[in-house]
């Protein structure tokens, strides 16, 4: 399986994403610069955290119009797994691949610490290796992770089981309904504020994020074994 790690000017979790895919999963992975115009040959797309374009205007707003983004949208429409973490999540929201928007953290502070997450839906290509309702520890690191959507959107998120992760215990940023991560209606685009790529080895303080990446590979192998 071949992963693309998209790199924008200002991305800073790209190396961790690459490490998770390449070293921890043992899969192929390549960095793809934001002005590339093709993502042919990649099976999954990873949008890393960071401060793309300095977070100017709004987080993710400028990255969303990078040339590579039309390819990311194409891959998402084709059903390929697309994972956006932190700034990657913000880019997916700005691109309209996921509903809602980010506001400044309620506390106005940049938060950087491990938080408890509850797996609300393990029936996705990103969460199948977790138990339903499992509580995991994953670090967050953001100033703008206060997820917001209107009531109508919230109703459809709930109805389609699109809420994958919620904060367990304390909500660090004030997000609506404690939301930490959501998928699109088709279930192949996941955006989440916590950083699973920073929790893939006990040496890093925890390995609870590894199952997320393993879920992606498992789903890909199963779907390709059927075709073979």
């Amino acid at each position: 399986m071949k992963f693309a790690v998209i790199v924008f000017p200002g991305s800073n979790c790209d190396v961790d994403m690459y490490h998770a895919a390449k070293d921890e999963l043992g899969e192929d992975a390549e960095y793809v610069w934001h002005d590339e115009t093709s993502l042919d040959g990649y099976d999954a797309i990873l949008l890393p955290g960071g401060f793309s374009f300095g977070d100017y205007l709004r987080t993710g707003a400028i990255a969303r119009f990078s040339p590579v983004m039309s390819e990311v949208i194409k891959a998402a429409k084709a059903g390929k797994p697309v994972l956006g973490v932190c700034n990657g999540f913000q880019v997916l929201l700005e691109a309209g691949l996921l509903p809602g928007a980010m506001r400044r953290n309620e506390s106005l502070k940049f938060i950087c610490r491990p938080v408890g997450l509850k797996v609300e839906n393990n029936n996705t290509m990103f969460s199948s290796a977790y138990e339903q309702g499992e509580v995991i520890q994953i670090p967050v690191a953001h100033g703008e992770g206060n997820y917001y959507c209107d009531e109508e959107t919230m109703a459809s998120l709930k109805q389609n089981n699109q809420i994958v992760f919620t904060y367990h215990g304390t909500n660090p940023n004030g997000s609506i309904e404690d939301i930490a991560g959501i998928v699109n209606e088709q279930g192949n685009v996941l955006g989440m504020m916590p950083h699973p790529e920073r929790a893939v080895d006990t040496l890093l303080g925890g390995a609870d994020g590894l199952k997320l990446f393993k879920s992606i590979v498992k789903q890909w192998r199963e779907s390709h074994a059927v075709k073979a």
Binding site: L57, G100, Y148, C149
Partner: peptide, 8 residues
């Protein structure tokens, strides 16, 4: 398209 985010 860019200067504002119509969601918020």
């Amino acid at each position: 398209r860019l200067l504002s985010n119509p969601v918020i």
